[in-house]
Amino acid sequence: MLDADFFHRWMTAAADSVDREANHLTELDSAIGDADHGSNLHRGFAAVRAALDKEPPQTPGAVLMLAGRQLIATVGGASGPLYGTLLRRTGKALGDAPRVARQQLAEALGVGVAAVAQMGGAQAGDKTMLDALLPAAEALGTSFGAAREAADAGALATVPMLARKGRASYLGERSIGHQDPGATSSALLITALAETDGASGGDA
């Protein structure tokens, strides 16, 4: 079972990963966007880390809801409301249980991902974060490792896609051939989840 501390470590691992990959995300974003995805998420996850460390919430749901609120309040752009909503709605779906099973998290993540799809009006194949998140949420029902592989494969699969949402969509055909920055950062978030599980000794 996964407790609040596990979710706290997941968010910290995600913040570390965003720190390491910020320049890479910004590079991807400058090809088909506006060159700020890395710096924006870096600012947001720094705020998440600070808020969680200051007053660690007592339940998995509360950890994700606090993290989501921090992202909405600090990131801006489309990423702020979308990532913020992902974490808030996933957290809300977990309720106030002190511990949750992986299967419950998979279901809750599905709820969060659906909220992102509704908010952004996007669907699978539009070259967005959903292309990593939809397969990851489904594969999380199998294992953490499967979720990670699905997210990575989903992010890679955005390369040949034509962007239909977000700023990359203005490029039309010229968006083809570039990996989507949002799908890439979504894969980082899922990878951080799998690594947190690995570090705590295997599938829960």
Partner: peptide, 11 residues
Amino acid sequence: PGEVFTSPVPD
């Protein structure tokens, strides 16, 4: 005003 080329936040 938001960050450079980034929308402001709801607050």
